[in-house]
Amino acid sequence: MTVTRDGAASARIADSIRADILGGRLAPGARIRQEDVAARFGASRLPVREALRSLESDGLVTLVANTGAWVSRLTLEECVEIYQTRERIEPLLLRYAIPHYPDDRVDELSALAARMEATGDVEEFLLLDREFHLLSYEGSGTSLIGDLVHRLWNSTQHYRRAYTTSLDDDRRRIVHDEHHLLTTTLRDGDADGAEHVLEAHIRRTRLQLAQHPEVFEFTEQ
């Protein structure tokens, strides 16, 4: 398939904005002005619009017709709903993926869990945590759940950062223990156990976030 110049520019713009949102450099509710993006990348408005539509489908940007684009944000109630959804569908996605693991998959996950435990940097932890969980679902072969989970992960990235920052030493220890326990159940071939660990792991994040409503406060930008 031939990639047009506008198509290549659109992908490049989308990748850059996506990295800025996931990396916390663009906060929820931040306005994204097409003219500023076009000037930054030396592009016309067309690839910028295509990039923003792509980011909207990823759950990262909200487009309002004839008004503009903003980094997507959630209310506490919306975030709780998303986490409750994740509690139910991610264990199922994990179960779909387990039979298709290559021989070294659990070793890869175990190494990522060790790296998360070793780092004290929040941004590095978030990158490793995302890689850990999405890798655990890789190969599931689903036509719907996998894409939905990626979108839900995107939409909650900022709030996972707030959750991670809020952890005290005891809660941080629990997070690491759950990652190690998940890899142990996977190594043992215990799909039921892995589902239960993952469900509790996601629920713990939801309950902790619900104790910090200030994370969801929004100032117009």
Rank of each mutant, 00 (worst) to 15 (best):
I21K: 06
R45F: 08
E35C: 08
L52F: 05
A65D: 13
R40I: 06
I82K: 00
V71I: 01
I32T: 00
D58W: 04
I21M: 10
I82M: 00
V37C: 09
G23H: 10
V37A: 05
A30H: 15
A65K: 15
G68Q: 01
S44M: 02
Y83E: 09
T75G: 10
R49Q: 08
V80L: 02
A39H: 06
L76P: 02
R45M: 14
E77R: 11
G42R: 00
R33I: 15
C79L: 02
T67I: 11
Y83Q: 07
R25S: 13
S72D: 10
E81M: 07
N66T: 09
G59D: 00
V64L: 06
D15H: 14
V61S: 10
G29D: 14
A14G: 07
L63C: 03
A39Y: 06
V48P: 00
L76T: 02
G29W: 09
I32L: 05
S54T: 13
A11Y: 07
D20C: 12
A69D: 03
D58T: 02
R73E: 03
P28R: 13
T67V: 14
G29A: 14
R45Y: 10
L63S: 08
R12W: 05
S57K: 13
G42T: 01
I21Y: 10
S44H: 04
A39W: 04
V64G: 02
T75V: 05
Q84G: 14
D36T: 15
P28W: 09
D20E: 15
R49N: 06
G42L: 02
R25W: 07
E35R: 15
A14S: 13
I13E: 07
A27P: 05
G29V: 12
G23S: 13
T67R: 15
T62F: 06
V61Q: 10
I32N: 00
W70V: 12
A69I: 06
S16I: 08
I17E: 13
A30C: 13
S72H: 12
V61T: 08
V37H: 07
L46C: 03
G68M: 03
A19E: 14
G23P: 12
A11H: 12
D15W: 08
C79I: 01
R45Q: 13
L55F: 03
I17F: 12
V80F: 00
E56R: 14
L60Q: 07
S72F: 04
V48C: 00
G24F: 06
R18N: 09
T75Q: 08
D15S: 15
T62P: 02
A69W: 06
L52C: 04
A69F: 06
V61L: 09
E50A: 11
Q34G: 15
R49F: 01
E35D: 15
E56H: 09
L26P: 12
D20A: 15
R12Q: 11
E81F: 03
R49A: 08
I21L: 11
R33C: 07
I13N: 04
G68N: 03
D15N: 14
